[in-house]
Design a protein around this nucleic acid. Structure first.
Lengths: 214, 214
DNA sequence: GTCTATAGCGGGATAGAC
DNA sequence: GTCTATCCCGCTATAGAC
């Protein structure tokens, strides 16, 4: 058995992700962690800070992994494809992360969300926008899409899939969670879909293509 | 002043959407509705059924509006563009709907979600898949994308934008909500992005194109 | 239909034994 | 470090006056 603190964090993570902060009781966390509920107060000052600890444990490492793939100097299509893969892998390996993030966004009106989350979201987003903008300048990507919107469209496909996972799973005809190989297939689909949307089409000369021809 | 029942439903909708079911108290709803909290129990049997009433009031009409646009016999690109517009308009006019739906998906593990939600989600999704499948058969859409995945990618772009609205708004540089004209611009962007992803590319002959040439 | 008062329960958090 | 016992508060829901 791992040490109690880790047990508690794991249990809390699962419950906060599935039910939200308010609906999750200290007693339920203790039960799920197979630990005496009063013990939570030995490791954490109160429920709110336990929640923050849960988020921080995941986020710090997670953000770095995705950001690494977004190199503005690399060819944009490759960089974006790699980032999508990294993001999907992360979400698959950390199954509760998407819902934790989604709750943070929905519950706290963003203004009161953890500063850590705000920073990470803004950092990754700016970075992706930058990659897209450079790709457009080089003619690798269509120039008639607003970079911010293109970034949102691309992120949304992965983010929504994982956030709505329970429902998506049913819609795809599975009973419990979506099987790992299906997630991988979806990830590769997103890359194809996003690439088709983002790269210039021979039939539709874009400003970037004209620029590239000079 | 509208009748008390409507006041209560409006207040409950706003609070459930922003904070979730568990974090919303009867007293807060009464306060927000400018109504005595005990009065809620005159109109609704308990908190859970008030919540259901909130959802049902919105969902019944909402689903029909979007489904109407998804005519499998119409040209797929037009049908999809219309559906995206209808969906976005609906979400814009019913600002709390996206978060209510997202919470329903995240909280209830889909299996225990309101049957009404399950039906609507499944119905709309099947319908969109059907439109895509027919479009592929007619050569209007790329045939190398799985229809279910293509449907998820397309829906996700709009759904995520609205669910993550508070955060998205900040990322786009706005302070409060995203202004209406920016939402409209994003909607048109999604249509362009989705169309580029879904329609065949001259450089990349697809099975559907070959089929269409016969 | 609307309000006051309150019952009754379950939650977060603490004291203190071991 | 872990457990028992318990306090106190705020919540849902009801009884009953008006």
């Amino acid at each position: 058995m791992a040490d109690a603190q880790a047990q508690i964090l794991d249990a809390a993570e699962a419950l906060f992700a599935r039910q939200g902060f308010a609906a999750t009781t200290i007693k339920a966390i203790g039960h799920q962690a197979a630990v005496n509920p009063a013990l939570l107060y030995y490791y954490f000052p109160d429920k709110a800070q336990l929640y923050h600890a849960v988020l921080e444990r995941r986020l710090a490492t997670a953000a770095r992994e995705v950001a690494q793939k977004l190199r503005p100097d690399a060819p944009a299509p490759e960089a974006i494809a790699q980032a999508i893969r990294a993001y999907a892998t992360l979400m698959r390996q950390t199954p509760y992360l998407p819902r934790l993030i989604a709750r943070e966004l929905a519950d706290h009106e963003a203004a009161h969300a953890l500063p850590l989350i705000r920073e990470i979201a803004a950092g990754l987003f700016q970075r992706l926008c930058e990659v897209i903008r450079r790709g457009q300048d080089r003619g690798e990507l269509r120039a008639d899409l607003a970079p911010q919107f293109a970034a949102i469209s691309t992120i949304a496909q992965v983010a929504w899939f994982f956030v709505a996972q329970p429902a998506v799973s049913r819609l795809l005809g599975f009973d419990g969670a979506v099987p790992a190989d299906e997630i991988e297939r979806y990830t590769e689909h997103v890359i194809r879909y996003a690439m088709a949307a983002l790269t210039p089409d021979a039939r539709r000369p874009t400003r970037a293509r004209k620029r590239a021809r000079r």
